[in-house]
Write a protein that binds this DNA or RNA. Structure first.
Lengths: 179, 179
DNA sequence: TTGCAATAGTTTCGACTCGCTACTAATATG
DNA sequence: CATATTAGTAGCGAGTCGAAACTATTGCAA
């Protein structure tokens, strides 16, 4: 077994072992991933298609997942004014609490802070490679985008032609193209 | 979001993006994980309970998964002679081929070989920590175990009291305790 | 303008996952 | 020898998953 395969196997078990934490309170890994994404994505990136693209699944599946999250009161939908086809989902208060409190804080064992940072960077680059390999969008954060423009404290998106709130600079955008 | 959470989020998306490869030929991530485990576990570690422990799921779930793999002819069962309760599963020829050929060889992008090795080591240590955190068994390989005894080319397991084949030294064992 | 084509989302289907509880059979233990 | 423990399974209900079919809206081009 070569290194790439070994890494993939480790990744697989790790996410499975992590997932066993979420399996308690009527919550599963897929739903947790959706909530996590919605908590970090900007207002232009929260449609079923976007979440599906991010997680590498289909619109049909995501439609189902979002429906079940709506039923649980964790997520709420808002139809777009301009394009009546598209819908933007967002966390409810309860959903926000679930994301913040519900996460069992995962340890890093005997890894030093420097090693953890190193691991984070390596994972980021691996993810970037595998995402590109499959033609997926990068889903990076707004401020690292070629369309992001900053003038003092004012921020602007050249692509969408809108002004941005300060907190939006760190959110995930489906249109993001790394600068 | 702290480093541990960030790492968990990266891990999650990575395994999800990887999983989208397996979703083609009537095969899913859970089944792929079972086949992968069975291909690497020794003859003492291939019962439903063992696979379930390894993947952090339940015996009931694993029983179902194994049933569907049997139906596809990828896996076959053998009842134990000594303990008539226990069953050991193993890959069929077709199952072996599926593991070997079916894996879309995953890239490592622009990571150097040294960086890939570093990533592998860090992941291994993180996994070890999270496994210990939850009281799971380590499922390490035979030769790194306190019960493993080597005398020239002869290998022996002190715990189970049996002689071991050379190739078994590198297989996963559910009884393994790191030396 | 009208007539597609593309897009966003949903629904339905069948196979499967998943935790849970209840169950059977075999083995241990006192 | 009675009872506890262990290994595995069956059934339940909610949900995941891909695929295909379907609706509604928007874009585009003749």
């Amino acid at each position: 077994m070569n290194t790439a395969d070994t890494i993939t196997a480790l990744l697989n078990r790790l996410s499975r072992v992590d997932a066993s934490d979420w399996r308690s309170p009527g919550m599963n890994a897929a739903q947790a991933a959706v909530l996590d994404y919605l908590s970090r994505a900007n207002r232009f990136s929260r449609s079923p298609s976007h979440v599906a693209d991010y997680l590498g699944t289909t619109r049909g599946t995501m439609s189902q997942s979002l429906k079940s999250l709506v039923q649980k009161g964790l997520v709420s939908e808002k139809r777009s004014e301009t394009d009546k086809r598209s819908i933007s989902y967002h966390l409810t208060d309860k959903g926000g609490r679930t994301v913040r409190d519900g996460r069992p804080n995962p340890g890093i064992g005997d890894l030093s802070l420097a090693e953890a940072r190193m691991l984070e960077q390596l994972l980021r680059r691996l993810l970037q490679a595998r995402v590109a390999e499959r033609g997926f969008r990068p889903f990076g954060i707004c401020k690292d985008c070629i369309h992001h423009e900053q003038d003092g404290s004012k921020r602007y998106c050249r692509l969408l032609g809108v002004n941005l709130q300060p907190e939006e600079a760190l959110q995930i955008c489906h249109e993001q193209e790394p600068a």
